[in-house]
């Protein structure tokens, strides 16, 4: 088991290295703003531009820049400095991460509770009006772009601009430690919007998986043994059907911790996603690189956690 985890971690490091290299190359190859010019101004003299390029290390060959970057991470956990604010990327990410974690954690709880419940009900009441309504509704939420759904939610329910002003709207995010009540209130709408699409996917996924499991022999055996239907479904059916959800959940959490970009932008939540979005529009490469690396790190870790959890949830799986 330990050997497995170590091996996966080493692969993870290799993957992160590749992601970093790819980001470097993409930033260099694709048309984007010239950081030195953006920093120095469009009418800056060539000398001023050259100085800024030197100052930012942009005058070095790309492989040297990449080597310096990796060296900084490995030796000092230094992700570099923003081209604009000159703040350290690590501190900027650390400053933004609590908002992103808050957003992701609440949304995960909501979509798991609703998605799993709806999936089970739909599977158990297959082809009933409840099933049709639930799956129809799920299709709507899957199809609706998150960005659009967020705007609709704000225009309907936000305290400042909504038709039914009942919940704090965009820009109301408050840190958990600053004011837990306000923190909770400010995240209700973003949680619901972010969870809506995921809950719909999970509900459909679980329904399909559960229907398949409920048709298997061991379920018939359980029923034949006289177990209650509730026990059959929850104990024997859901346990078997939930594996695909675990796989997806791990990846989704990993992705979200890297920043729920659209939701953070719409609801003006100062999280990692918005940090990344702003950095992309400003060609602030160190931040882009840092946030991409963070997202990749979370996905790698989430994958490892998912694989390990398989062994506990499914007796047929053994880690080697």
């Amino acid at each position: 088991m330990i050997a497995y985890v170590v091996r996966r971690l080493l692969w993870g490091v290799a993957l992160l290295f590749l992601v970093s290299a790819l980001t470097f190359v993409l930033f260099d190859v694709l048309p984007s703003g010239e950081p030195a010019r953006l920093r120095a101004g469009r009418t800056a003299s060539p000398q001023a531009i050259a100085h800024v390029r030197q100052e930012l290390g942009l005058d070095k060959p790309i492989y040297t820049q990449f080597y310096d970057y990796i060296k900084g991470i490995v030796l000092h956990f230094d992700l570099g400095y923003s081209f604009y604010s000159h703040a350290s990327v690590s501190s900027l990410i650390a400053d933004r991460l609590p908002a992103t974690i808050s957003l992701a954690a609440g949304a995960v709880v909501i979509w798991l509770l609703t998605g799993v419940a709806i999936g089970i009900v739909s599977a158990v009441r297959r082809r009933s009006w409840l099933d049709h309504a639930a799956m129809g509704g799920a299709l709507v939420f899957i199809s609706a772009p998150e960005f659009w759904l967020g705007l609709v939610a704000l225009f309907l329910f936000a305290a400042d601009i909504g038709k039914f002003p009942i919940l704090p709207g965009a820009g109301s995010y408050t840190g958990l430690l600053a004011d837990p009540g306000k923190w909770f209130g400010s995240l209700v709408l973003p949680w619901l919007v972010l969870a809506a699409g995921f809950a719909a996917i999970y509900a459909r996924l679980l329904r399909g998986s559960l229907l398949e499991v409920l048709g298997e022999d061991h379920i018939r055996t359980a029923r034949a043994k006289g177990l209650s239907e509730r026990r059959v479904v929850l104990r024997h059916g859901v346990r078997g059907a939930i594996m695909p959800l675990i796989t997806v959940l791990g990846l989704d959490i990993g992705t979200l911790l890297g920043g729920a970009l659209l939701i953070e932008v719409v609801f003006d939540i100062p999280g990692v996603g918005r940090l990344n979005y702003d950095a992309i529009t400003q060609s602030d490469f160190p931040i882009v690189q840092g946030t991409v690396l963070l997202a990749a790190l979370f996905i790698v870790l989430a994958n490892i956690v998912v694989d390990i959890s398989y062994a506990y949830l499914d007796p047929r799986v053994r880690l080697r």
């Binding site: 705007l151 704000l154 225009f155 400042d160 601009i161 709207g169 965009a170 820009g171 932008v265 719409v266 003006d268 100062p270 918005r274 702003d278």
Partner: peptide
Amino acid sequence: VNVGGESSVIGQQVLKS
């Protein structure tokens, strides 16, 4: 000054403020 947010939401916030 509140930095960030989506332009159409910001616009609504301003007009209704």
